[in-house]
Nucleic acid binder design. Sequence first.
DNA 1: CACCTCCTATACTGGTCTGTATAACGCTGG
DNA 2: CCAGCGTTATACAGACCAGTATAGGAGGTG
Lengths: 184, 184
Amino acid sequence: MADAGDLTPRARRILEVASELFYDRGIHAVGVDTIAAESGVTKRTLYNNFGAKDVLVATYLKNRHSGWWRGLEERLAAAEPPRALTLFDVYAEDARTSKRGCAFLNAAAELPADHPAYAIIRYHKRSVEDRLGELIAEHEPGAAEPERLARHLFLLLEGAFAHHGIHGEGLLAEAREIARGLLT
Amino acid sequence: MADAGDLTPRARRILEVASELFYDRGIHAVGVDTIAAESGVTKRTLYNNFGAKDVLVATYLKNRHSGWWRGLEERLAAAEPPRALTLFDVYAEDARTSKRGCAFLNAAAELPADHPAYAIIRYHKRSVEDRLGELIAEHEPGAAEPERLARHLFLLLEGAFAHHGIHGEGLLAEAREIARGLLT
DNA sequence: CACCTCCTATACTGGTCTGTATAACGCTGG
DNA sequence: CCAGCGTTATACAGACCAGTATAGGAGGTG
């Protein structure tokens, strides 16, 4: 399960196509034949590069995390305080792009807990919560219960994203407003 | 897609088995052959009773909603104020039973938006949010922004449940504590 | 030139998917 | 008794599933 940078051009293409299909239709609903055909590549090439579907799934999530994280840090570098709200902005932008919600929550809902991708899901979500905690700490250095506030905002964020496909538009904007009211 | 009460004993058995399998392993991961075999019934009987897997899936969620809702109202009838927190208790109890999180969120993550079951998912979650709004209104009749508070607690509740399988124990208890602090 | 790596093309294995066909059995109500 | 219904048992269709086998082509490097 290499980084996307280590991949040959064909392998990168396979990963791109697989990522889009996994996200849009779900992981179990997409077969390797479909991925190979849509990538314009034979199945042999897919298996030479990834070895198994599970590996491709894990690579999909790992790559999605690192790309998303890079974008987040870029946004944070240009953001003005309170930067914790920037996380809500980034989530809202993701939600605007698609109605399928969070790729990581969707994968977690579909995969067994011992799937190799599950650790990546945990890592991603823990990273988000930890980063949120840092952003809160930098804005409110003397807060009474910083961890509790971080958890509070994290739950708002994740609740809104989890319900994006079910509830409809505007939920993340509302969550952002609620979060803004919780910050001094 | 009948109520569970209208079903023949065999059909009820099929629905029970299918419900457990769908919840534990995911909908796409469970085939009708498995359901029929585990129910001690032939596939013909399954199809005579439900007609198609999609119908069985929709019936699974519809039945799960009505059973869960009955349990919720029983708990609410015996609860002391603020009864909004009883919803957190019920969710926490669900979470204690299984690590697989919310059956409705999981199904939504896996199914396309035009699947017959999707409307049931929307209905279930809208019902929960509406009921939460009522419980808040009865406790704080003069609240400044009751809808916003309801949305706030709803997001805490759903965020915690969505992350139950990822994050580990205790998240719903923390969400409950946060919610308690938001109620007067 | 020879080698090596990546790729193509095609076919296949063995299994699972949803859904249907055919025929017979057992119970229950008229 | 008998007709009807839900059921059993077995088999099948046609498609898809993950993954492998075999053989050979294209391009660069020694």
